[in-house]
Computed example of a mutant assay.
Amino acid sequence: MGQPAASPAIAALRERIARLEGGPARNRATLPFGVPTIDKVLPGGGLALGALHEVAGGRNGAIDGAAAALFAAGIAARTKGKVLWCVTRPDLFAPALAQAGLLPGRVVYVEAGDEASVLACFEEGLRHGGLGAVLAELARLSMTASRRLQLAAEASGAIGIAIRRWRRQTEATDFGQPTAAVTRWRVSALPSRPLPVPGIGRARWRLELIRVRAGESADFEVEACDDKGRLALFSDLADRSLKARNGPVRAIG
């Protein structure tokens, strides 16, 4: 005798659990980086839209923290629509964000007095449904709060980016705690690209994909976002043959 058909409520619950576990990631819209080495390790070939992602600086310093913010700005720049950026302190440098492709006219800044207010604004922005991306700078992010943010992002289809910033070193340990974020990234600044003449070349970063739901971690070395929010291969790597790049170079984007 066959099994009775599942009720609509049970079917919906199973579908929701599958979403939380990353089951239908292949059917979710994504935002590709345009760098095949990075996109191929991400389910669906890019960052999942309608999802929460985390970004942090590699060594918890101001330089790496700025690199993490610019990495997030480059992602937001490649979305469509307005971008909401929630902060507790007004220390963002708009010209630098514009160099990463995120023009001032697209960004709505929300300055909240504390992290609880930032979280509330973050969730409300994700639920709004009319924004291309919502970013928030947070020191701590609990599993409960991240689940609410993930569900809000799923409902609206917007991409949410939690930029983890710490005022005290002791707060950095919170980044190792589990959250509901679909991906978790760490960004570290590297020496800029050398130029044939005196000057400062394009910034370079080490990207560490620490966690990706339904995928494997990896790390990449890239040139920083250009004025369209796009990452790039090192010039000396881009000119090499595919065979040479697949040899001694390890997971370089």
Rank of each mutant, 00 (worst) to 15 (best):
A180M: 14
A203V: 03
V110T: 15
I163P: 01
R184D: 05
R230K: 09
S117T: 15
G81V: 05
V197Y: 11
A224V: 07
A120G: 13
A238Q: 15
R206F: 04
I17Q: 13
S235A: 12
G160R: 10
L242C: 01
R202N: 01
L13N: 08
F33D: 00
L103F: 06
R206D: 00
A9F: 06
L102G: 06
V41S: 07
L103E: 06
E137Q: 11
G105N: 12
A112H: 12
D64V: 02
G74H: 04
I10N: 02
H128P: 01
A11E: 15
W205Q: 11
L84I: 09
W85G: 09
A251F: 09
A29C: 07
L141S: 06
G46S: 03
N27Q: 12
E154A: 07
I75L: 13
A145D: 01
R16V: 03
E171F: 02
A158F: 03
G105W: 03
I159E: 07
R250F: 04
G113F: 02
A72G: 11
P194G: 04
L52R: 09
R206Q: 14
A133N: 08
K228A: 10
P4G: 02
R127V: 03
A155F: 02
R78M: 12
A73R: 13
I75R: 13
V212S: 04
W85P: 08
R230G: 01
I210W: 10
L207N: 14
L141F: 01
C121G: 15
R230V: 05
R204C: 07
F220T: 07
I163V: 12
K228C: 00
A162T: 12
R19I: 06
W166H: 15
R127D: 00
V197M: 02
R230A: 05
A139Y: 13
E137D: 01
I63H: 05
A62D: 04
A232Q: 08
L207K: 04
A145Q: 04
V187N: 08
F122D: 11
Q150V: 02
A136V: 13
V108H: 09
G22M: 12
L233K: 05
L70T: 05
A203Q: 12
P24I: 12
I161P: 09
W185K: 07
I200T: 13
L49V: 06
A62F: 00
A238Y: 07
R127W: 02
G57V: 06
G199W: 05
T144G: 04
I75T: 10
A153D: 10
G199V: 10
F175H: 15
P95V: 04
L13T: 09
